[in-house]
């Protein structure tokens, strides 16, 4: 029991750790690895799939190394016009926009449903 990690460690970013850090690939041009603290498949797969929709992105992949290591890695390589950081930023912007749409649509559909009852 005593060596079990605290449950909250799964979602609380410890002090002194950055939520995201970027490390440029030393061997490949236009490539970088993003480390996201306290995230998992939920966000990892979502961002990866969105990055792959960008024609400027040559490669995008994510890795959740271990269930008890509460971080993910996202690797991005671009064609060169857009740095990986920008591609990542765009992916997030697009996803936030999409979620706003989903929220609005659900809300208005729910309002209609309620009026019918």
């Amino acid at each position: 029991m005593s060596n079990a990690p605290d449950r909250y460690e799964r979602f609380v970013v410890p002090e002194g750790l950055q939520k995201i850090s970027i490390e440029k690939d030393t061997k490949v041009t236009n490539a970088a690895t993003f480390t996201l603290q306290r995230e998992d498949h939920t966000v990892g797969n979502l961002i990866r799939m969105q990055l792959l929709r960008d024609p400027e992105v040559m490669f995008a992949g994510y890795k959740f190394p271990h269930p008890l290591e509460y971080h993910i890695f996202i690797k991005v390589q671009t064609m060169g016009k857009k740095p990986p950081r920008e591609a990542f930023d765009d992916a997030l912007t697009n996803l936030i926009g999409e979620l706003t749409d989903i929220r609005d649509k659900f809300q208005s559909e729910a309002d209609i449903k309620r009026q019918l009852d």
């Binding site: 950055q18 939520k19 995201i20 850090s21 970027i22 996201l36 995230e39 966000v43 950081r85 990542f88 930023d89 997030l92 912007t93 996803l95 936030i96 979620l99």
Partner: peptide, 9 residues
């Protein structure tokens, strides 16, 4: 996602 975007260096 917003939080990630803000935390992006």
């Amino acid at each position: 996602l917003r939080n990630l975007q803000q935390a992006l260096p």
